[in-house]
Each structure stands twice: as C-alpha cells, then as structure tokens.
Amino acid sequence: MTRRRPTRSVSADDLLTTLGRLTAQARQGAELQHARVELAEALQREMLPASLPALPGLSTAARYTPARDGLDIGGDWYDGFVLPDGALGFSVGDVQGHDVEAAAFMGQVRIGLRAAAAVAADPGETLSQANDLLLSADSSLFATCTFLRFDPLTWELESARAGHVPAVWATVDGRAGIAEDEGGLPLGIAPGEKYPVTRRRLAPAGAFVLLTDGVVEGPSFPIEEGLARVARLVGAGAGADPGRLATDVLEVAEFTGHSDDAAVLVLRHDAAPDRHAAHGTALG
C-alpha cells in the first residue's frame, strides 16, 4: 500500500512572502519604466529650441505636447534658426518610433538639418544632404520632415517635404488651404533622394502652419478631416497672435483618439513690403 504525503498547507506567512516578492518586482519594473520616461522627456526638453527667430513683419510660435501613454515620446520636433545669409530656416518633423532612441535620433536629424542648411542652396538640397548624412550613420530609424526657408529681402517662402504631413496656410482676407506640395521619401530611407522645392510669395498678410501627424490623425478621424479642422482654425485666426493660434491648432490633437506626441509651428507674417508685392505669385 502506497502512503501519500500529506498536502502542505500554505500559511499566511508564505502568502505574505510571495506577495512581497511580487510587489518588489512590480515596483522595480515601474521604477525602471518611470526612469526611462523621465530620460526621454529630459532629452526632448533639451533638444527643442528655447526660442525661435523672428523678424520685423514675421512672428513665430510653437507648441509641443508629449504622448499620453507609456514611452511614446521623443519622436516629434520643431526648430528655427538664422542662416548665414540672414534668411531664417524652420523645420518640423517626426521620427519613426519613440522612447530614448527616437529622442536621440531626433537630435541627430535636427543637427544634420542645421548643418546642411548652412551650405545648401535651397530646402530641397538641405533635405537631400541631411538624408545622405543620416544614412551614413547607419541607423535603423527614419524621419519625416518639412523644411522652410524664409527670405526677408524677397519675402519668399521656400519649402521642401520629406514624406511629411502637408502644411496649412491662410491669409487675412479669408482664404485658406492645405499645401499639398510634391515631396520625396522620408529621411533615412534611400540614398540620393531628391526633394522638390515649392516657392511662395507672402504678398498678403496671413499665417503658414507646420505640424506633425499627431495633431491631425488618429482612430477618431482620418488625416483629411484633421487637416480640414486645422485649415478652418488657421483661416479664422490668420491675423491672430501666433502663440494663440499655435495653442488652438494643437488642441485639435485632443480629438484624434490616439496618444501620439504632437508639434505645431506657426509663422505669422505681415503683407510683403510694396517693393516685393509685385514679384511672383501670392501665397495661395
């Protein structure tokens, strides 16, 4: 006859010990997650510019909001700087992925764009040079981007797009639209990529708004509806304070139904001086 060992009862002490071990493991995991989020947020804060350039007749403002879930932070950026010839360069973009790696790559993209813009002839060449520079770094990430160059002498805005969301424009006389300009592949995909340049004369006063897809696209509505909402806002606020307009545009992200980070950059411009108004075609 086989004797069965009595079943060992689980004591309260055993349960408390197990619970304590599991709690400690969960706390350690939560602390690690929190530390990574804080690091990504710190990188994001340090890499976004503290201020944006402006000129008489051109005022600028930007807004950024981090993602609302997990480590979805670090991919979106905005930037603005003065070029060697006195023109102003502006960029908005979105790095594939998130977390600390995306924040670090975003910094590389921004630095690459600034370096390329200092020697490039136009925004298309700026994106081409930055694209080849990023590919030489052998990263697995890529980035979408729009780069602008504003010339205060000609009152001309040149733009090029690397797989990025279209910009939105409006004039104080009530016109507004979506800048569906021709573009190229995102940065970091293929070597030797070319980026067409679109040129606009900012003859009437108005606003030109760059943004990332976190503002206009999500489960709640498609990008077309998001862009249409932004166009209505920009059309109504083309003559408003750029900071107020940037805040209003960023709030569209609350309706998208997703938790991606989002960035907005507003260029609010006066009408071109009379000596420039007769040259070229007005915005829109």
Results as ranks from 00 to 15, higher is better:
Leu187Glu: 02
Leu265Cys: 06
Ser220Pro: 01
Gly218Pro: 05
Pro196Lys: 06
Asp241Pro: 07
Ala160Asn: 08
Ala203His: 04
Ile111Tyr: 03
Leu22Thr: 12
Gly80Val: 14
Val197Phe: 14
Ala277His: 12
Ala67Phe: 01
Asp151Gln: 04
Asp69Lys: 10
Gln44Ala: 03
Leu55Glu: 15
Phe81Leu: 05
Arg3Asn: 14
Ala26Met: 14
Ile111His: 04
His276Val: 09
Gly188Tyr: 02
Leu233Ala: 06
Asp151Tyr: 03
Gly74Ser: 11
Asp261Ser: 05
Met106His: 07
Ala263Ser: 15
Ala61Cys: 10
Gly86Leu: 09
Leu202Lys: 04
Leu15Asp: 08
His279Thr: 11
Thr154Glu: 05
Gly192Asp: 10
Pro56Met: 06
Leu113Ala: 06
Ala62Phe: 11
Thr212Tyr: 03
Pro191Gly: 06
Val197Glu: 09
Lys194Ala: 08
Gly97Leu: 14
Thr126Tyr: 01
His258Val: 02
Ala120Ile: 03
Val10Thr: 15
Phe105Pro: 03
Glu225Ala: 12
Gln33Ser: 07
Gly188Lys: 01
Ala103Gln: 03
Ala26Ser: 09
Ser220Phe: 01
Asp85Met: 06
Tyr64His: 15
Gly89Pro: 05
Ala121Glu: 15
Thr171Asn: 13
Ser220Cys: 05
Gly89Phe: 08
Ala271Tyr: 03
Pro53His: 08
Pro186Ser: 07
Leu52Pro: 11
Asp241Gly: 09
Trp169Phe: 11
Gln108His: 11
Gly239Lys: 01
Arg199Pro: 03
Leu245Trp: 13
Arg21Val: 11
Ala203Asn: 04
Val119Ala: 12
Asp72His: 09
Gly124Asn: 12
Val82Phe: 03
Asp261Gln: 08
Asp151Glu: 07
His258Arg: 11
Val230Pro: 00
